[in-house]
Design a binder for these strands. Structure first.
Lengths: 213, 213
DNA sequence: TTGGACATGTAACGGGTTACATGATTGA
DNA sequence: TCAATCATGTAACCCGTTACATGTCCAA
C-alpha cells in the first residue's frame, strides 16, 4: 500500500536510481491510477530500505553521470513476496466528480450546465487515457507480462465504461430536471428552503454591516 | 477533495452533529468508495468551519441527550457552491490488487494460487457491495436525488464490470502460465535471474553467519 | 448495574507533498 | 554560455488517523 512496497516492486523490474523510479512511476502510474511519487518521498525511503538491508546501492557511471543504482537483496525479494501474498485491501477512491454529483441537488440544483461541463471534462480525460493505453499495450518497447496485459485490458474496459456513462449522464442532464428518485422526508425540499433562508440572512447581514460574532 | 468539503456537503443534506456526520459518512461512504472519516478529523474541522463562519452551531436536546447540531450559513452555502463549480480533478485510485498484479510476474511467478485467492476475495467483496447497493437504491427510507440515482447506477455498472473481470482473470490464471505479452529486452528473464542470485547469496550469508554491514 | 449506543474531544504520530537547495552534464 | 535534463537531497508543513480520555443516557 505504501511507497515502500511500490519501490520494491519497481526495483523488482530492474535496478534503478531514485530518479529512474520517479520517471517509471510517472509513466506507469498514469495507467495504474496512482499519481506520481515525489522525490521527497523516494530518496529518504531508499535510504531506509538500504539500512534495513532490503536493497543495495551501487555507485556507477551511467552515460557520463554518476548515479546510485539500487537493486533488491535476497531479503528485499522475500519482503516483496510476503507483501504480495497478503490479501489486498479493497480500494477506496475519492472521486471528486462523484462527490459533487451527490451534493449537487441540494447545493446548486438550478445550474445543470456547470455539471455537464465537469462531465465533459471527465469524458475527455478518460478518452485521452484510453488512447494512451491502446498505444502503450502494443508499443513493442515496454515489457508487459501476461498479468500486466490482463490488468491493462481490464483498465481499458473500465475506461470505456466511464466514457459510456459520462455520455449517458450528460444526455440526461440536458433533459429537464427530474424530481428526486425517492425522498420520503421531503429532504430536498427542506434543503432548498434552508439554503434560501441562509442566503437571505447573509444578504441582510451584509446590507447592515453586521459582523458575525 | 478534503474533509472540509465533505462536511459542508453532508451538512447541506441536513443539519447534523459530529456524531451524525460520522455515521452518515460510514453509510454513504461505503457506496461512494471513500472510507469513513475519524472523529479526530471531524470535530476539530467543525470548530474551524464555525470560526470561519461557514457553519453555525446550535446546542439542542435530541431525545434526552444534548448535542451540538451544525448547519450551513449563507457563507457556507456559497463556499459549497464555489467548490462544486470547480472542475473536479481526475481520480487516482491506489488499488493494491492492481499493483500486486503488476509486480507478480517478477516477484513470484511460480505461485498463481495465491493470486487467484486475492481475486476471489475481491470478487466476493465487490459482489457484497453490489448487493448492498441494490437494496439501498429502493429502500424507500433514504433521500435519493435524480443525480444520486444516476451515480448509483453507474457504480453498479462498475461493480458488475469488476466482478466480470475477476471471473475472467481467475479463469485465465487457472490455465497454464503464458509467456509475456511482449518483452523486447528479456526483462522478465533477467528479473528471474536476479532474484535467484539474490536469494542464493542471502542463503549463503545466513549459512556462514555473515552479518550485512 | 452494567454494557452498549450516544456524544465530544485531544495529543501524538505517520506518511506524504511542497518548496527549497545544490550541482553536474549536455546540447543548442 | 545558457537552458534543459539528469541527479540527489532536506526541512517545513499538511492532513489525516490512532489511541486515548471522558461522560451521559437507556435498556436489559
Amino acid at each position: 500500500m505504501s511507497v515502500k512496497h511500490i519501490l520494491l516492486g519497481i526495483l523488482s523490474w530492474r535496478p534503478s536510481s531514485g530518479y529512474d523510479i520517479k520517471l517509471e512511476v510517472e509513466v506507469q502510474g498514469r495507467q495504474m491510477g496512482w499519481g506520481s511519487i515525489s522525490y521527497g518521498s523516494i530518496y529518504p525511503q531508499l535510504k531506509k530500505l538500504e539500512e534495513k538491508g532490503l536493497i543495495q546501492a551501487q555507485y556507477t557511471e551511467k552515460s557520463g553521470r554518476k548515479t546510485t543504482i539500487y537493486d533488491l537483496t535476497g531479503k528485499g525479494w522475500t519482503e516483496l513476496s510476503n507483501w504480495l501474498a497478503q490479501p489486498p485491501s479493497y480500494p477506496t477512491t475519492r472521486d471528486e466528480l462523484y462527490m459533487k454529483l451527490s451534493f449537487w441537488e441540494t447545493a446548486m440544483p438550478e445550474d445543470r450546465h456547470t455539471l455537464i461541463q465537469h462531465l465533459e471534462l471527465r469524458r475527455q480525460e478518460s478518452l485521452a487515457l484510453l488512447e494512451h493505453f491502446q498505444q502503450w499495450i502494443n508499443n513493442d518497447r515496454s515489457a508487459i507480462s501476461e498479468m500486466g496485459k490482463i490488468a491493462m485490458e481490464y483498465d481499458q474496459a473500465r475506461l470505456r465504461l466511464d466514457i459510456e456513462w459520462s455520455d449517458r449522464i450528460i444526455e440526461q442532464l440536458k433533459q429537464p430536471a427530474q424530481p428526486p428518485h425517492q425522498d420520503p422526508n421531503r429532504l430536498f425540499e427542506k434543503a432548498r428552503h434552508r439554503r434560501k433562508c441562509a442566503l437571505q440572512q447573509d444578504g441582510y447581514k451584509k446590507r447592515n454591516g453586521d459582523q458575525p460574532q
